[in-house]
């Protein structure tokens, strides 16, 4: 068991908007409890506020109402003691650093000596052996995301936050990255929240999938995935998986739900 539990209680987030005194409601009365070592996926249409929810947990935004706490602490204090790992859709690699130094960056920012073994181990884990001295500009999109994932794990964070980390990749690379992330995660089991709009990705990676409605974001569906870990990519071909995909797809697009209303 590694990581800390995340508790989101009655969180509402409004963004100020010119001409509207109440502002735009991005999230409305959201409550989520993520257990220690649990992998939760947030699934929702574009603009439903799922990224905002993740930014609240990452201490990049503050809730208008309600509280977010991680292991009893405010998210900001977790960031301050370098216990958060994040990988966003923008890989945010520093172009002047090579692969090794980008992955080692969190050590420098935490004023810790670089653990070369940990960095080397992660380079190995994400399959970038031989690319240690390459710079981001020389890598493919998939490789950059792997560097970003490795960087998010290098300090053995208590909480891992992933915001569409593979959103910019093609379908084939994305599937491959999902399989790799599943393998990596199954070893470390850090409390993780993944934001995605891919149903397959959410089901294959998470222990629990939460579906958010369009703005303002509310949780409209919750599904616990019944697959064992470590997961074989073959589960994606099972009947249970396909049924869950249909189920969640319906929840995501309520307008086409009539055919499956009874489910």
């Amino acid at each position: 068991m590694t990581g800390a539990a995340i508790s989101i209680e009655h969180v509402t987030k409004r963004f100020p908007l010119k001409g509207q005194s109440a502002g735009v409601m991005a999230l409305e009365d959201i409550s989520i409890a993520v257990e220690q070592s649990e992998f939760v996926a947030l699934l929702g249409p574009s603009g439903c506020g799922k990224s905002t929810l993740l930014r609240l947990v990452a201490s990049l935004e503050r809730p208008t109402e309600g509280t977010v706490s991680i292991g009893g602490e405010a998210p900001g204090s977790l960031a301050a003691r370098h216990a958060l790992g994040v990988a966003f859709q923008d890989h945010a690699l520093l172009p002047w650093l090579n692969v090794h130094d980008n992955i080692a960056l969190p050590f420098s920012l935490a004023n810790k000596p670089v653990d070369r073994e940990a960095v080397g181990g992660l380079i190995d884990l994400v399959g970038l052996n031989g690319f240690e001295t390459a710079r981001p500009g020389q890598l493919s999109g998939g490789m950059r995301q792997r560097v970003s994932i490795a960087r998010s794990l290098v300090l053995s964070p208590e909480v891992l936050l992933l915001d569409e980390p593979f959103g910019a990749l093609d379908a084939v690379t994305r599937r491959q990255m999902n399989i790799e992330l599943q393998r990596i995660w199954s070893r470390q089991r850090i409390t993780t929240v993944l934001v995605t709009h891919s149903v397959d990705e959410a089901l294959f990676l998470a222990d629990r999938v939460l579906v958010l409605s369009a703005r303002p974001g509310r949780i409209i569906r919750e599904v616990a995935t019944p697959f064992d870990r470590p997961r074989d990519p073959a589960v994606m071909r099972s009947a249970t998986f396909h049924d869950l995909v249909d189920d969640l797809t319906d929840a995501l697009h309520p307008t086409d739900a009539t055919a499956h209303a009874g489910r």
């Binding site: 990049l60 966003f88 520093l94 172009p95 920012l109």
Partner: peptide, 18 residues
């Protein structure tokens, strides 16, 4: 700054000086 790098530094708890 490179896209997203400011958020990254904030989440990683980087000091102003760093």
């Amino acid at each position: 700054l490179p896209h997203g790098s400011q958020d990254l530094f904030s989440v990683l708890g980087a000091s102003r000086r760093a």
